[in-house]
Amino acid sequence: MWEQAERALNQSMTRMVTALAALLPGVAAFIVAVLISVLLGAALAAILRGLLAALGFDKRFARSSLTGVTEWSPSHSPTLLVSRIAGWTVIIAGTLIGISAFDAAWATDFLSSMAAYFPNLLGAAVVLVVGNIAARFLARSVLIGAVNLKLQYARILSLGIKWLVLVLSVAMALEHLRIGAGIVQLAFGILFGGIVFALALAVGLGSKEMISRSLEREPSAPPSPPPPVEEPFHHV
């Protein structure tokens, strides 16, 4: 009995060591691929950074109307953003190549599912970036407008708008990634239902007098002429 148990253990050890030995070239190839991709990514990022800096990319970009991207970029530098994106793309590609070096069925399945998932990832990234830029732009518009209207709660209003748009864009990105697909519908339903209800209440209560005045107005009374359009340069 002991002999049989010893043989079974030996066979198990042999299988384990054989499997590990079969995996080692794949691991080595993965490490090499990742290292090379890191080096290549860093080199590409450095070259791109130097090239774009020489071309004055940041200044040219700043002159375009895409100021939101500049604000969103690391250190307010679109050059840095582009070089980092390029660098990370190379590193991710190298990692995927490394994974494919494992000569196993799961690696192939993983790669094919990653390839199928890539458009979703890209879409979610675009939604996040656009949402971020829109949130900042709207938050600033609301903040400046509210301060000029002397609203004491300008900052809270601006923060509210910013987070509203950010949360919405994150929810949309999650839906793109097929994570919690019901969130967006639910959020839209609750949010817009709430807004419409609030507006209906505000208009209904606030314009009560205006509507009654307009109903009481004589039908024969001529409509008042529109106020003349004021030309700002008259104030100069």
Partner: peptide
């Protein structure tokens, strides 16, 4: 000139 921020925002932010 530098378009540090949106030009409309910039000019409106001068009001206060």
């Amino acid at each position: 000139r530098l378009r540090t921020l949106n030009r409309e925002h910039l000019l409106q932010a001068l009001t206060p």
